[in-house]
Design a protein around this nucleic acid. Structure first.
Length: 192
DNA sequence: AACATTGACAACCGCAAAATG
DNA sequence: CCATTTTGCGGTTGTCAATGT
């Protein structure tokens, strides 16, 4: 990530990681005016970002109700269950996990669950689990894609530490490593 | 200690649906 | 209706940090 995000001659539209200033501007603006048409919001707020970018930033990161880190075993189970039902309907799944965003769930699924399912598949002789990768492309029937097809992947619930399912180690609570600042910081700076 | 690989996540892109004029 | 704009979604990429060799 280029730390000097695209200063290509004030190229109207900025890309890349958001700066703290931009975050503050966005938060402030939305606090004062509420969400609106994102394109005009971006302009009105004086951000050199596309409306799309602002929307994404707000929804996935800045909203006060966004929960971060620590997907709980309950949430994990829910994700798997809903994914088994609906496939890659991330936004739909996200609606059932308050505070979680579709992006977060999608990332979580891809980087953790899917990987572990693959591994489990490999070890277990790849018979019934084969389904997943392609299945996730959403056209798969819910039945064929039901949770039973994750025999080795689905934790008994409540999740059992001994289960073969790789209970995903929650990242450390302080993992706001992100070259980012904590939301608390932002909201504090923002006044209210 | 240096380099390579992997994991995790934020952000971008393209497309389609919905809304608006 | 039709054209244009906006929104929302899912897939993918780029980057940094952590871990392994």
């Amino acid at each position: 990530m280029d730390k000097s995000p695209c200063n290509s001659q004030d190229a109207e539209v900025r890309k890349g990681p958001w700066t703290m200033e931009e975050d503050l501007i966005l938060i402030n603006y939305i606090n004062n005016h509420g969400e609106g048409v994102w394109n005009s919001l971006a302009k009105a707020a004086g951000l050199k970002r596309t409306g799309k970018s602002c929307r994404l930033r707000w929804l996935n990161y800045l909203r006060p109700d966004v929960k971060r880190g620590n997907i709980t075993p309950e949430e994990q189970y829910l994700i798997m269950e809903l994914h088994a039902k609906w496939g890659n309907r991330w936004s739909k799944i996200a609606k059932h996990l308050p505070g979680r965003t579709d992006n977060e769930i999608k990332n979580y699924w891809r980087t953790r669950i899917q990987k572990h399912i693959k591994q489990a598949e490999t070890y277990s002789g790849q018979s019934s689990c084969e389904v997943n990768e392609q299945a996730s492309s959403s056209q798969m029937s819910a039945a064929a894609y039901s949770i039973e097809n994750y025999p080795c992947a689905v934790p008994s619930y409540p999740p059992n530490p001994d289960s073969c399912y790789p209970v995903v180690t929650p990242f450390p609570a302080d993992q706001l490593n992100e070259n980012y600042w904590s939301m608390e910081d932002l909201w504090l700076l923002n006044g209210d």
